[in-house]
Design a protein around this nucleic acid. Structure first.
Lengths: 359, 359
DNA sequence: TTGTACGCGTTATCAA
DNA sequence: TTGATAACGCGTACAA
């Protein structure tokens, strides 16, 4: 009489099918359907097959909310990310397979200029995520500590973080990456190597430290220019203009990331400074801007997917064993030599150089 | 005796607090808490205040899964997006406020090289989203039609789509944007205007049509170069090399997007072609690469946030009134004149020009 | 103004 | 191998 009319069970128009619908169609119980779809012991292989087929035919999708509600421990992993930063979104590609390998679903929560990290984390808590991965948050120091404390679930931060914090840290070995760059340039014969710093992200602090350490080790005089700004490329462009206004140019410029290097490259190109004939130039990230041939940038490649996967591993390990202490995972980088670096030419001293071509 | 010991209700360590916890702390019923937090009529202002305070103190977050399960109609909006495309992620900034204005939560589902649109949509269906916004899918034509039919909920596609399709289409007026560019160049005195096409996204088809229409209207001979490739910048760089290898250069190059324009810019710079003295150059998008001053690119600005917000509006309108037919929303663009366009110089004909400086 | 009762779709614990 | 039953957290009639 009511909605149980067996004539209408076929497709259940207008309503998303449930396990009960599958069970009705096959003439078995809801519970068998649950066991069959969940790969739990019980149903016969034949039943399992028929259940799968019926689920596909009806367009069944498990109700994630109901699963989260019923399961003893949530199998959802929350991820906070910044859509604005291209390098970070590549990390997502590593998160999904790693989480799936642990039987975990993933819920994304974006953090933008208009949406704080706290807001993003709050939403993930609403989804009852059992662990959180924060990719390149704008928060630092105590701000993130407080957030982690309030979250009540294990947190891993990708990109940068303090050692021995309340959360896992997974990052690239920016210090050795920068050392590799400096040593590569030193091997080519460069002695005047300037570092373009961008304070855009905390990860660049590690890179600057690597530059300073390598310069000291080689007995060279460090020279750091740059600063902070909303547009990373613009920071690089401003640093390049500063270099052009100074007497003489260094023989090599090492940028904190590819975007800043692109800013340097374009400013130099407009002022007639040739790369690499007049100045060698390097970046860091090996993101899209550096990969296409017209930039042809020598840079340091990270493994974004590997960072994402590693973050999933460590944070789920702590979820499964709360006694574990947060760890720091440092992933190696790889120097990618392209056409923007070469042995220094004749124009090295603080003399004329091809500096002023037009304002 | 069991877990109801009133001495331990304070914070409920280790477990996420529920409405029942708040009710116990305040000595009221669980339902009053629900009414108070849901802004439903009933509880006194004083009760409402105490409930809010207790919720904040306990770190309460509503169980989104339970809400989705209980509510008659889901108040969740699903969004498919491509993390790899920077222009698309800016659209997200418009989606969240618009959805919130309708009392809707948002769930994100990324589509990448390793994660198909169908997979992404399936996950959103699992969250019981009552409407879907697809931002720049790789699917075209029947593929998307099938997906929409299977989804069973209204879908809006942002960026490009067929008219009178089974889904809403929200896109920028690329045809008029490109016409504006051509007319701007024509007004400066340009007559030889080449278009660099990139087949990267369907949206560029509309832009090419705008270029061809404007050229025909002005009585100019169209010239289209470019093609497809995985890296959009590289397509622009290859097109620029092609132009340099041909006898003579056009006086202006119009690129389908900023990334291709950057590729053209860098290739030209390396070969000694000055922008805008030798060739004027334009882009399309006004994304990050074009905004920083060293590129200084004349381009066409879209309103990504506006696109996202409009998509939310039209798709929720269809959710609320299923009798509505899908619509096409075309949002205006805005020409942004910067330093990469100027009146053509002396070197126009198919003569020498500053083409070959080094291979 | 507050409390009672019920069910959303699922998983888990039983007993048959 | 399968079927009954309970419960997860919340929203919503309806009664007090």
């Amino acid at each position: 009489m009511s909605g149980d009319d067996p004539m209408t069970v076929g497709t259940g128009e207008g309503r998303t099918p449930t396990m009960a619908d599958i069970a009705r169609v096959l003439g078995i119980s809801r519970q068998s359907v649950s066991l069959a779809l969940g790969d739990a012991p019980g149903p016969s292989p034949e039943t399992r097959r028929r259940v799968r087929e019926a689920a596909a035919a009806l367009g069944y999708h498990p109700h994630l909310g109901a699963q989260a509600l019923r399961r003893a421990r949530s199998t959802t992993l929350g991820v906070v990310f910044s859509p604005a930063h291209a390098a970070e979104t590549e990390i997502l590609d590593g998160v999904y397979p790693a989480a799936a390998a642990h039987g975990c679903g993933v819920v994304l929560s974006p953090q933008t200029v208009r949406r704080s990290t706290a807001e993003a984390v709050g939403e993930l808590l609403g989804h009852r995520c059992s662990a959180l991965v924060v990719i390149g948050s704008d928060l630092r120091g105590r701000g993130l500590d407080d957030l982690v404390a309030r979250a009540g679930v294990p947190v891993a931060q990708v990109g940068y973080g303090r050692r021995n914090a309340a959360y896992d840290v997974v990052r690239s070995a920016g210090e050795t990456g920068l050392s590799d760059v400096v040593e590569h340039l030193h091997g080519l014969g460069h002695r005047e190597i300037t570092y373009v710093h961008t304070a855009s992200k905390p990860a660049t602090l590690v890179r600057r430290a690597g530059y300073l350490a390598a310069m000291a080790r080689l007995g060279l005089v460090p020279d750091v220019v740059g600063g902070r700004g909303p547009e990373v490329e613009e920071v690089g462009a401003a640093a390049a203009r500063h270099l052009l206004d100074r007497p003489g140019l260094p023989t090599a410029v090492v940028a904190a990331n590819d975007q800043a290097a692109i800013g340097v490259l374009q400013t130099f190109a407009r002022r007639g400074v040739r790369i690499p004939e007049d100045v060698s130039l390097t970046g860091f990230d090996d993101a899209a801007p550096a990969r296409f041939s017209s930039a042809d940038l020598t840079t340091v490649a990270q493994d974004p997917g590997g960072l994402g996967a590693a973050a999933v591993e460590v944070v789920l390990a702590r979820r499964d064993d709360p006694a574990r202490r947060p760890v720091e995972v440092v992933r190696p980088t790889r120097l990618v030599v392209r056409g923007s670096t070469a042995a220094p030419g004749r124009t090295t001293g603080p003399t004329t150089g091809p500096t002023t071509r037009r304002e």
